[in-house]
Simulated scan of single mutants.
Amino acid sequence: MVIDLAYSTIKNRDIQNRDIRPEFANKLLCVPPSLENKGNIYVVKTSDPKVPEAYLNQFQKDFSLFLSLRSEEIVPQGRMFITLVGRSGTVKEDDIDLSNLPLYTPREEEVKEIIEKEASFIIETLKAFEINHSDPRDGNLVFDENRIGNYFASERRAITEPMLARHFGDHIIDHLFSKYAKHMSSKSMLERIKHTTIVIYLINK
């Protein structure tokens, strides 16, 4: 297990505001212990039902620690803005992710429950935004399929590259995400993709 010191320690105090990006907010400190997820490196449709539960339990533990430490860094009434890659369905229905990485994409209600239970922050705003890239009624529709694929690849790369490189080596990264971009820009994928981002604005108590 490799502990991310930027995530799990206090680096500064008396901070007025913090802006937390998905590559930190979606991270787990470790893969859930005793995880049996043969053939996959993440939670996918074919995963054992116990796997999503294990990932959620680990995210609850780690994100609670993350909130507690950030609360000690930020001054009272200071603000923290967090962006998470989220999802709208249950984990076992998600078969389009990079697919045992220390990474979790939560649902809006899961995040809300953790913040309220940890109790260091007041929730000013917590909202999930969903874009269906294949729905012509969506004003955010992007018609350039290659652009969509590259967008998803860049987003996933920002979150997962350090973990993948540590496990498999730097030499595979460019090729891996090039293939991922092509996969995500295919017509069959665009018909199923719903991109969810969770935006959170918190006030330190």
Rank of each mutant, 00 (worst) to 15 (best):
M1I: 05
D4F: 03
L5S: 01
K11R: 09
I15M: 13
I15R: 07
Q16N: 13
R18Y: 14
R18F: 09
F24I: 14
F24E: 09
A25Y: 06
L29E: 14
S34A: 13
N40F: 05
P52L: 11
A54R: 06
Y55P: 08
N57P: 00
F59H: 07
F59K: 03
Q60F: 01
D62M: 02
L65E: 11
L65F: 03
S68G: 04
L69V: 01
S71R: 13
S71N: 12
E72N: 08
E73P: 03
I74M: 01
G78Y: 08
F81S: 10
L84D: 05
S88T: 15
E93G: 09
I96M: 12
P102M: 07
L103A: 08
T105W: 15
E108A: 15
E108M: 15
E109L: 15
E110G: 03
E110H: 12
I123R: 04
F129E: 13
I131V: 15
S134W: 13
G139V: 08
G149A: 00
G149S: 02
N150F: 03
N150V: 00
F152G: 11
A153M: 00
S154I: 00
R157E: 04
A158W: 08
T160M: 08
E161Q: 10
P162I: 10
M163T: 14
R166Y: 10
R166F: 12
G169Q: 02
D170M: 02
I173G: 03
H175V: 07
Y180F: 14
H183A: 14
M184Q: 15
L190W: 00
E191A: 10
I193D: 06
T197M: 11
I200P: 08
I200Q: 00
N204H: 06
